[in-house]
């Protein structure tokens, strides 16, 4: 395909992925890699490299807005980034040892899980007592703004959250995705953070996590500028647009449709890996 047409098409598809990713909270990056490999026959390593770059862009772009609203908890984010960045380096190292067919299968499994999370409703948990002593020592307990006042919260099970974050970082470095879904689980389930805080803090962390493995990807030659350009600008434009028109009303049907699309891509990735096509 001529490069101008190819770039234009990739830009539009990445834009759509970013848009739907922002609306459903799944993130756009996670569907771009399967689309590039399955529809456009792009080698999964180039696809992972280009997607990872777009993940840094969307995370930083969105965090720029969130962080000023005071929802994200910088201390929790920074502490957990020790685990996610270390995991990301390990994941990026693993990536070079694993055959591409295995990468495709693991990617498919993560996508399947993400689609399940997209369809299922999330419940933020929120505790105000019995904080983990470690959280007290690390000054993690805080408050967030809601309807003109500050709502206090405390943090539970810091060690469990930290371990889960290492796993999330490893998946991020291995597959070139933000693995925001896994990060949110660590903060929802283990640390019992309020919904708004876990979502925005996770998003805040994604850029730093992705930057840790992006260096290794660059030096290994996974990042092609001409491919990364439409992917990154497309996902970024789409997700900024999606964040702007976040209307709660019709989200449910959209989540279901998007979840099904992701599940379909997941099965195709697993099949592609098993049949040795990827």
């Amino acid at each position: 395909m001529p490069i101008t047409e190819f770039s234009g098409l990739i830009f539009l598809i990445s834009g759509l992925a970013g848009f739907l990713g922002a609306l459903t909270g799944l993130g756009g990056g996670v569907v771009v890699t399967p689309v590039l490999t399955l529809l456009f026959g792009v080698d999964i390593r180039y696809a992972i490299g280009a997607t990872l770059v777009s993940v840094i862009a969307t995370s930083s772009g969105a965090a720029a807005a969130y962080v000023r609203e005071g929802f994200s908890n910088i201390r929790i984010g920074m502490f957990l980034e020790i685990a996610t960045t270390a995991g990301a380096l390990f994941g990026a190292w693993l990536n070079s040892r694993v055959p591409t067919s295995a990468l495709a299968i693991i990617f498919g499994l993560v996508l399947l899980y993400s689609s399940y999370l997209t369809v299922r409703a999330r419940h933020g948990t929120h505790t105000t007592q019995n904080a983990d002593p470690l959280a007290v020592r690390l000054r993690m307990n805080s408050s967030y703004p809601s309807a003109g006042r500050r709502i206090e919260y405390v943090v539970q099970r810091v060690k469990a959250g930290f371990s889960l974050m290492f796993a999330a970082g490893t998946i991020s470095g291995l597959l070139g995705i933000g693995s925001g879904a896994l990060k949110v689980i660590a903060m929802d389930r283990a640390m019992h953070l309020p919904f708004k805080v876990s979502t925005t803090t996770s998003n805040f962390m994604i850029g730093v996590t992705a930057a840790a493995s992006a260096g290794l990807y660059l030096f290994r030659g996974y990042i092609d500028p001409v491919l990364a350009m439409p992917v990154m600008t497309g996902v970024l434009a789409g997700s900024l647009l999606g964040a702007r028109i976040l209307v709660e009303a019709k989200i449910k049907a959209l989540r279901l449709i998007f979840g099904l699309v992701v599940a379909f891509l997941a099965i195709e990735m697993i099949y592609g890996g098993m049949s040795g096509r990827i």
């Binding site: 101008t4 792009v42 180039y46 290994r220």
Partner: peptide, 30 residues
Amino acid sequence: ILIGAVFYFLHHPAARANYRTFHSEPDDLR
């Protein structure tokens, strides 16, 4: 990136996309 993209399309209008096989990027891009 967008300025670079304009340069690229002006310099290589006839380039074709080919990412089917992985052969690491050249040293100049790494």
